[in-house]
């Protein structure tokens, strides 16, 4: 299967935009958490690495360990451009320095983006805060891509090779 992760899409996903991801456990129920950053490691260019607060993500991490099924939605707040990616090989990774290093820039950029909506910066920084020892990283290979920008076309499957929404 062709990976939908072309350079334009990869740039969009790692441009410090809003992230939520969900997983379905063996009980068939989906649960979700907010992501705190996304990067693509040079040594594994087909996988997305999602940073998250481990205490907040606990049921999601458990579901990922059970089934590996994941869906992640990425939204650029000021433009509403949104995509959802799905994969079946999600797994927990050990957190490395490069993962932790994206958190600061991620919070700074999200604070800047949400100023459009008059969202106070302390609120954004509180929402996205995570103690250094509490990060977790989930990685997966995106297999399916869906346009999710609000409107009647939201949810349409996008062909592999589609760039940023």
């Amino acid at each position: 299967m062709t990976s939908p992760l072309n350079p334009a899409l990869a740039a969009f996903l790692t441009s410090h935009i809003s992230i939520h991801f969900a997983a379905t456990g063996t009980n068939g129920m989906a649960t979700l958490v907010r992501g705190l950053g996304c990067r693509i490691a040079p040594e594994a260019p087909t996988r997305l690495r999602l940073l998250v607060s481990r205490p907040q993500a606990e049921p999601v991490l458990r579901a990922i360990e059970e089934t590996g099924r994941i869906a992640a939605v990425f939204n650029e707040p000021e433009s509403h451009r949104t995509v959802q990616l799905k994969g079946i090989d999600a797994r927990l990774e050990s957190v490395d320095q490069c993962d932790q290093a994206i958190h600061g820039p991620y919070v700074d950029e999200m604070s800047r983006r949400l100023k459009v909506f008059d969202t106070p910066e302390p609120l954004v920084r509180t929402l996205l805060a995570c103690a250094p020892g509490e990060f977790a990283v989930v990685s997966f290979t995106p297999q399916e891509l869906f346009g999710q920008t609000p409107g009647p076309q939201a949810g349409a499957r996008l062909p592999a090779g589609t760039g940023a929404p």
Binding site: A22, T24, G28, A30, L32, R69, A71, V73, T82, Q84
Partner: peptide, 21 residues
């Protein structure tokens, strides 16, 4: 004020996540 996220699952166990207005 801030959009919420919603996760659902299809009968085959594929999760779906999106924002709700």
């Amino acid at each position: 004020v801030v959009p919420s996220g919603i996760a659902t699952s299809s009968p085959d166990g594929t999760p779906n996540v999106t924002y709700i207005s």
